[in-house]
């Protein structure tokens, strides 16, 4: 397995350093940290295999792609409103990190881990209790996990707005390439991948043949499709 080198993003004294997505081509990570981890720079494709551009993303629609691992999902949203800039967030131990905001011409494109940091409810092929709520839906404009009613604000780094989640949803850091196509490059914030792989080993074995297969990192490209096409059932309570 390839060894990574790491960069401490937030010091032990609590000093906060902004993540610049352009730095993320390098391999960065806090030694002890849960705050930023770089993965392969993966180009997003649409269901037909065409590199995805901002214009292909319908506003407020839920899209999903597998990243950073074959067995983990990411929720991709083109928000109706411009996202906030430089949002200071904290993980459950009080360690701070900075969410720079969305990408795209209006900074409306955001992506978050499809694993709820509360009790690990997650988007999968069978069902999804996690959705971005469109206009007119309960909690409109928010990402909601109906596993235990955790509500997050995607315009502000998916900080917790309601419920008992102890920390924000991890953010998938996106870049827009020179050709105007979208790339995923890393994970910012407290991810739950370790706990996820541990808790769902049986399910992952069933779906991927082995946990090892599910833990393979996505490289090069990932298909982003509508949540309703990815999962058998989208469940909102």
């Amino acid at each position: 397995m390839k060894r990574r080198s790491f960069l401490k993003v937030v010091s032990a004294t609590g000093m906060m350093i902004a993540i610049n997505p352009s730095m993320i081509n390098q391999v960065l990570r806090a030694d002890d940290g849960r705050l930023y981890k770089s993965y392969a720079r993966v180009q997003l494709l649409n269901a037909e295999g065409t590199p995805m551009t901002e214009q292909m993303l319908e506003t407020s629609e839920n899209y999903v792609f597998n990243y950073p691992y074959e067995g983990t999902t990411t929720l991709l949203i083109n928000l109706p409103n411009e996202s906030a800039k430089d949002v200071s967030l904290k993980d459950e131990f009080g360690e701070a990190y900075l969410w720079k905001g969305g990408v795209g011409s209006r900074r409306t494109i955001v992506a978050y881990s499809g694993i709820c940091p509360h009790q690990l409810t997650h988007i999968n092929k069978k069902d999804s209790f996690i959705t971005y709520r469109k206009k007119g839906e309960r909690f409109e404009g928010h990402v909601v996990c109906d596993g235990h009613t955790s509500v997050y604000d995607p315009e502000h780094g998916c900080k917790v707005m309601k419920g008992k989640a102890p920390q924000p949803m991890a953010s998938i850091v996106l870049e827009v390439g020179d050709d105007n196509t979208l790339y995923a490059v890393g994970v910012l914030g407290p991810d739950k991948y370790h706990e996820f792989f541990k808790s769902f080993r049986r399910e992952l074995k069933e779906q991927f043949g082995s946990k090892r297969n599910a833990k393979k990192e996505v490289v090069s490209t990932a298909v982003a499709m509508r949540l309703s096409a990815y999962t058998q059932e989208v469940i909102q309570l």
Binding site: D127, G147, K198, I235, L237
Partner: peptide, 20 residues
């Protein structure tokens, strides 16, 4: 959906207490 929510709720709680 509420029925599925019931099962998902329980699974999450057992995961929390037992890391099962």
């Amino acid at each position: 959906n509420n029925g599925k929510g019931l099962m998902e709720w329980a699974k999450g709680m057992y995961r929390d207490m037992f890391n099962a």
